[in-house]
Amino acid sequence: MTHTYRTTETYDPPDRRDGLRARAGRFALLPLRIFLGVTFIYAGIDKLTDSQFMSATGSGSIGELMSSVRDTSAVPALVDLALKSPEGFGYAIAFGELAVGIGTLVGLLARLAALGGALISLSLWLTVSWQTEPYYYGNDLAYLMAWLPLVLAGAPLLSLDALIAARRRRIP
């Protein structure tokens, strides 16, 4: 006499869609990297090529902008520091934006670049756009939040960081 045992559980092979979802998830931060990288490169170039902006005084200058937000900023001491050398501060922000944008776009030291972008956005939010009401009209806070996923995840795909890591794994 033979017995046949039946189980209620069946083996389901991994769904092809799960593999596609996992691969798609790896690309999820790429649009954000491209947007933030291009935007910060553009912002840095825009500042560097605008002689009116890179002045201590005058209409549209960094000095005038910082003077106008000094009393309404969350951290007036930060504005006072910028006002000691408005042109130097303008150049520091512009070159910082360029470095952050390039690092983010090509994925080189991506977490460090994203941290730099977050710190620039935070400093601008606490000074220039702090008085914006309601708060969600100010774009610096949104940029700060956009940088945080890149600070946490870096650039694991289509980046120089990933290329360098792959080369290190191949070298015994």
Rank of each mutant, 00 (worst) to 15 (best):
D15T: 10
L48Y: 04
G58Q: 01
R21D: 14
Y42P: 09
V100P: 01
I171N: 13
R26I: 05
S73D: 04
G117E: 04
L119Q: 09
I120W: 01
L29W: 07
T132W: 03
P86L: 00
I102V: 13
L32M: 08
Y135C: 07
S67N: 15
S55M: 13
Y137N: 12
E64F: 07
V79K: 01
L78A: 11
L126D: 02
I34G: 09
D46P: 08
G154V: 03
L29Q: 08
D12M: 13
A43T: 12
A94S: 06
T7P: 01
L141D: 05
M145G: 09
I34V: 15
V38R: 08
A74R: 06
D140F: 13
P14I: 07
T7G: 05
A165C: 04
D80V: 09
N139M: 15
K84G: 14
D140G: 10
D71E: 13
R21T: 13
L141R: 02
I34K: 08
S123F: 13
A166P: 04
Q131K: 12
S129W: 06
L105H: 01
G37K: 00
F95I: 07
L122S: 02
P156M: 01
D71I: 06
E133F: 13
R33V: 02
L115M: 08
A110S: 10
F89C: 12
S67E: 11
P134Q: 07
L144R: 07
M145Q: 09
E97S: 10
T72V: 08
L157R: 13
P149D: 02
T127G: 02
G103R: 00
A110T: 01
Q52C: 05
S59R: 12
R167S: 11
S73G: 07
G63V: 02
P76E: 06
I62L: 10
Q131C: 11
L157G: 03
V106S: 02
E133S: 15
P156E: 04
G25W: 03
F27A: 15
Y91M: 08
G117I: 03
Y11I: 14
E64G: 11
Q52S: 13
L109R: 15
A74E: 03
R111M: 08
L29K: 06
A113H: 04
F40T: 05
D18Q: 11
